[in-house]
Design a protein around this nucleic acid. Sequence first.
DNA 1: AGTATCATGTAAGAGGTTACATGATTTT
DNA 2: AAAATCATGTAACCTCTTACATGATACT
Lengths: 184, 184
Amino acid sequence: MRRNAKVTTLEHALLGLAAQQPRSGYDFKTLFESTALRQFSSSPGSIYPALKRLEGRGLLASRKEPGAGDRSRRIYEVTPKGKQALRSWLEHPATVGELRLDLRLPLLRFSLFGSINMPMDKAVSFLEGLIAAAKQFQVELNPSVSELARLQDPYPGLALDHGIRGLKELQEWSRSAIERLKGD
Amino acid sequence: MRRNAKVTTLEHALLGLAAQQPRSGYDFKTLFESTALRQFSSSPGSIYPALKRLEGRGLLASRKEPGAGDRSRRIYEVTPKGKQALRSWLEHPATVGELRLDLRLPLLRFSLFGSINMPMDKAVSFLEGLIAAAKQFQVELNPSVSELARLQDPYPGLALDHGIRGLKELQEWSRSAIERLKGD
DNA sequence: AGTATCATGTAAGAGGTTACATGATTTT
DNA sequence: AAAATCATGTAACCTCTTACATGATACT
């Protein structure tokens, strides 16, 4: 079988949350609804099928937990194979290419580092890589700054300025996060 | 016909670019590849079908422009109906709900304000609304800060800190953009 | 008694991703 | 002569969105 080869962002997030602690589909759903994770999904229509796919691929395992009456919850927990997939995803260093496409993804990974007890020095390396990628991306954008400054339309240049500020902020945050991690 | 009621983000972006100036599918494709717009699409597989859909709905019109040999480009330009749809999208104020889901969208809209010659005072109102929404969102996140600070897992709290810094930065950028717009 | 929440799911439709396909022209 | 670029598209597959559906329990 060569289908379903790719694990999606939503699936990776579910994997990470399941690795933190076993949860039911409903638990995942409410977590996604009530936190910044909502960016990566919504509603049962994506979460329940994703859980089934992950179980079908052997990355999650489930058991029925009979509740009061018929409120039986199905609890998912990560399998060794799932933990392996999670680990290799989390350990992917952030690259310029990834930042260009979506800078929220490295942050999502970082937020889930605890799910595999990522050692502090690896987290610091990740952040250092993130700083390097952000810096490089920022440099790449410099030609566009002068280019857009020449237009009479001010909006694209201003929007680009926001992007650059975001990259600077990302570097500053990364440095402060490194300090906080080291100060434990 | 009630199908295709919803205009997607990619389609709105195409509409805005076409309103700036008529372009070919290839022009759109290279623009998306070479700018921050790449976040909202990729490759011909999404762009060409989107252009066809927009033409089918009467939001874009196309004409063949015979080039040298058989390099005929198909040029798309926005129709009055398309400009209307574009305008109503661009004039949507940013809300907290939108920021919670994806704060890149209001920025995308802002970057395309020139395509309908958005009057300066409306752009300023938009930014003021953006500041208000960002502020409100920031306040909403405060309970999570104390909650996550209590965990032994440091990563979610640090990631949240990045989100909050981003919201502060968004407000600062908005203020500076207002100044720049007024200083014209 | 009625509403909200817990809890899980399915079905239809649409759009995006990836990969492939074609052919001319320009550059190396 | 070969490779890159211009230029447009299609097909398969998959996932997501939206909406609907069900039934028990807790709350007011």
